[in-house]
């Protein structure tokens, strides 16, 4: 909590409190891995329990899923560019890439919500079967994380506009970057173990 500033480090690592926050966030991501790991385990237990309801092959439309995937993976790349611009101390570059990241993220959430609505119209709801319960819970948790991330990053963008690049805003941006990449990794697992596996079974 004391100042203990080290200007040789990147902006987000310069103060002691920043270093604590970043480590704390890594530990939090560890807890998130367990959380999603449990949801994946639940999904893998229930993924063939259709209870007479629709199966993955009846529902999934691989084209839409591909678009979602490309949107989210691209947003992870642009998020990396944003942090790169932050390290170069280029505030406008950072803001530009961060906003593009969020737009791609919003596109992803929009597509996913549409996908869910489509399924519900086909009669596949959370209450239909154990498989669909676990499907909607796993994807819904991920989608909720992305939506929270968009709201959270918006707050950070406002603060960068207000205060410019300071150790505090840089730390906040860096942490949301970690969060965003993490959600991307989770999506890769969802794509593999939910969609691809569901289509090839």
């Amino acid at each position: 909590m004391s100042a203990n500033v080290n200007t040789a480090l990147p902006l987000e690592y310069q103060t002691e409190q920043n270093r604590l926050n970043i480590l704390g966030f890594w530990v939090f991501l560890g807890a998130e891995i367990i959380l999603f790991g449990t949801l994946f385990a639940v999904y893998s237990v229930l993924n063939a329990r259709f209870a007479g309801g629709p199966t993955p092959k009846d529902l999934f439309e691989i084209k839409d899923v591909m678009i979602e995937t490309i949107l989210l993976l691209t947003s992870s790349f642009t998020c990396g560019l944003a942090i790169y611009e932050m390290r170069r101390n280029n505030k406008n570059g950072l803001l530009l890439w961060l906003i593009i990241t969020l737009l791609l993220g919003a596109g992803f959430v929009f597509m996913e919500v549409n996908e869910f609505i489509h399924y519900v119209h086909e009669g596949a709801t959370m209450q239909t079967s154990a498989w669909l319960s676990s499907f909607f819970t796993l994807l819904g948790t991920h989608g909720l994380h992305v939506s929270m991330g968009i709201g959270w990053a918006t707050m950070v963008i406002i603060q960068i506009f207000q205060r410019g690049l300071t150790p505090v805003t840089a730390r906040k941006t860096f942490i949301i970057g970690l969060y965003w990449h993490f959600l991307d990794v989770v999506w890769i697992f969802i794509f593999t173990f939910v969609y691809l596996q569901g289509m090839v079974r």
């Binding site: 807890a31 959380l35 959370m126 079967s129």
Partner: peptide, 26 residues
């Protein structure tokens, strides 16, 4: 976090009618 998930699924089962731990619905 495991308990967080377990309790969330229990909440969904009890309040939102899902089928994680029920005898019906798989």
């Amino acid at each position: 976090p495991i308990f967080t998930v377990a309790l969330a699924l229990m909440t969904l089962d009890r309040i939102f009618g899902t089928h994680f731990f029920t005898l019906s619905g798989g």
